[in-house]
Design a protein around this nucleic acid. Structure first.
Lengths: 333, 333
DNA sequence: GGTATATGGCAACCATTTCCGATATAGCCA
DNA sequence: TGGCTATATCGGAAATGGTTGCCATATACC
């Protein structure tokens, strides 16, 4: 690969001059500029980005670490981040820990060793463990989306999970439903805990009957929700509504209900969470009523916050909270 | 951020010594090693990866540019690449051109400017234009998956699209079907052309009736396939089988057939391509008969080929071709 | 002849690695 | 004990490929 010295030699000038035309600065005579450009073209020369970044102390790139890149749920988040970084003039690169915290933190380190100007991490799992604290205490610009840790101040993009769950549950209650079940996600994640809290608060506020056995944990999985709900139905326990902590388990619930001859929403109204809908054959399903996460906007806010931190280091930690929106589908009017 | 000089000063040694313990080499006295390690810990020092890579001429990372990261079709490919690079000791980072060639080529450049040891590009769209040729002519290690350009030798992972389409069509013919329609993708992509070629060859070999009007282009979209096939059915044209160039349009075809009172597979047998199945409610669909792409293996082969190119520059260009496999579902016995 | 401006190059700097020469110590033998 | 060599340990300096501040030179203009 040609270097700036090769170009300088070829054009019979100093490296400074070449650098000046590369960054099109003034102070280069027309003839020299022409010679240099010709040499660049002849050698198909591309400046080495590493050397440049080393000298400039600027990489003009954002690194993103996801819990898992292979989940269509994150598509809108990714799009929001891409569009925004594009607009703000930053490159953006992604990597994924594949739900493995050890790998994920390796990539956090990877990005933090000068390879990027700052980074964004996404995922609830990130709140786990000590490495997370290390992450928010290190000096590089950093934004955490969705993950959450109490009593620490840092750039954080959040969804109001408590409020969203409250809203969903209240909606079911206002429809006159009384026996409402809640399917939670993995209770190690604060997303699950928050949504459960919203559910419980709404139930208490309405003096509705809370039967702890009707809170079933399904780890955000369709299959598990199907099994657990099927088991309850076999015991002749029947709700008149169900608030699922995510859409995937909601579909499992629907399937279990169908197989037991129950109609949705006539017998049981269903509300999910996330607006994580199947991609094909939408029209053959009952469209799920759900709480939509504004993922695109959250990705946008994440990049905007990060870039502000990068370009204005004195700016204090920012927390942005988004409200989920009730999307009325066919599983609950 | 602390640098190696800070550590050297703190420990009262030269930078060379610090470098030696960082790369745990010999030639450092136990006392000095201890002092240096203490300083590293105190300052929470992480060596700057850029400077390191500049000096070593090695980044130990692979860059991947996708047509579009936001497509669940590529999940298995990504997983194959991740697992394999992990095993071979390389970091792997992804970015996406969002179906915009200009952005995509910017990222190709981005990776090629010394930021990675080599790169993998995925996508048919990449075959377009001159920039592609520039890409395969540049000196860095490089692998193209799926994209294709005739009369050029370079590292290339391919699917036998012609053979797969031939196999699918032959299967329909052997079931006794005669009036077979073919739904193609965007004919700017060689994937679409190759699959059409396989279809046509199989039809000719069987002396089956080829009616060019029954080859309908649907750009790999479900909705478009639905519309085009619906229009044909309204004209009272009815096939007894259909080979779709991808799964998404196959679902559109099925929907159009259902709405016209035709049964699948009794009246019309369907074979898709890609094994790109919906992620939820699998069980409520007729499972699609399709040609499976071994995407995980293709990703694996891509990384293996690239790493071989990186670590053994004399190795010539390699081409690996994978055979798609017929997966019998419920839309064609 | 003096000054303003355009142009060019030297050299330091970014953070690291590594070759090589310098120094110190230990071991050995006469 | 003195002198020699082998070995361990260390630091200087160049190299990686760029950027940039500052000074020197040349030219134009008044």
């Amino acid at each position: 690969m040609a270097t700036i010295s090769d170009i300088a030699n070829k054009a019979n000038v100093s490296r400074s001059l070449v650098s000046r035309v590369l960054n099109n600065r003034s102070g280069v005579s027309p003839e020299n500029r022409k010679k240099i450009l010709a040499a660049i073209k002849e050698y198909n020369y591309k400046p080495n980005a590493l050397a440049r970044a080393l000298s400039n102390q600027k990489t003009q790139t954002i690194g993103v670490v996801m819990d898992d890149l292979c989940d269509k749920f994150v598509f809108d988040l990714i799009k929001g981040m891409q569009d925004t970084s594009e607009k703000l003039g930053y490159n953006i690169i992604f990597c994924s820990g594949r739900a493995n915290n050890e790998v994920k933190f390796r990539y956090v380190d990877y990005f933090m060793q000068g390879r990027t100007d700052g980074m964004i991490a996404f995922g609830s799992r990130l709140s786990d463990g000590d490495v997370f604290k290390e992450m928010i205490e290190q000096p590089n610009p950093f934004v955490l989306i969705e993950g959450y840790i109490p009593d620490h101040e840092f750039n954080n993009i959040q969804l109001d999970n408590v409020g969203g769950a409250y809203k969903a549950t209240k909606h079911l209650l206002e429809l006159g439903r009384k026996k409402i079940w809640h399917v939670t996600g993995d209770l190690h994640f604060n997303v699950s805990l928050d949504r459960r809290e919203g559910f419980l608060t709404a139930m208490r506020d309405a003096h509705a009957d809370i039967n702890e056995t009707n809170i079933v944990c399904a780890d955000f999985e369709e299959e598990l929700a199907y099994k657990r709900i099927s088991a309850l139905l076999r015991d002749n326990k029947v709700p008149d509504a169900c608030f699922a902590g995510a859409d995937k388990p909601a579909y499992g619930v629907i399937r279990a209900l169908y197989e037991n001859g129950l109609r949705v929403p006539e017998d049981v109204a269903i509300i999910g969470f996330d607006d994580d809908r199947p991609d094909t054959f939408d029209m053959l399903f009952p469209r799920l009523t759900t709480m939509r996460q504004p993922l695109y906007e959250m990705g946008k806010a994440g990049v905007e916050t990060l870039v502000r931190s990068i370009e204005n280091p004195d700016w204090g930690p920012t927390r942005v909270v988004f409200e989920p929106e009730l999307i009325i589908g066919q599983t609950c009017p």
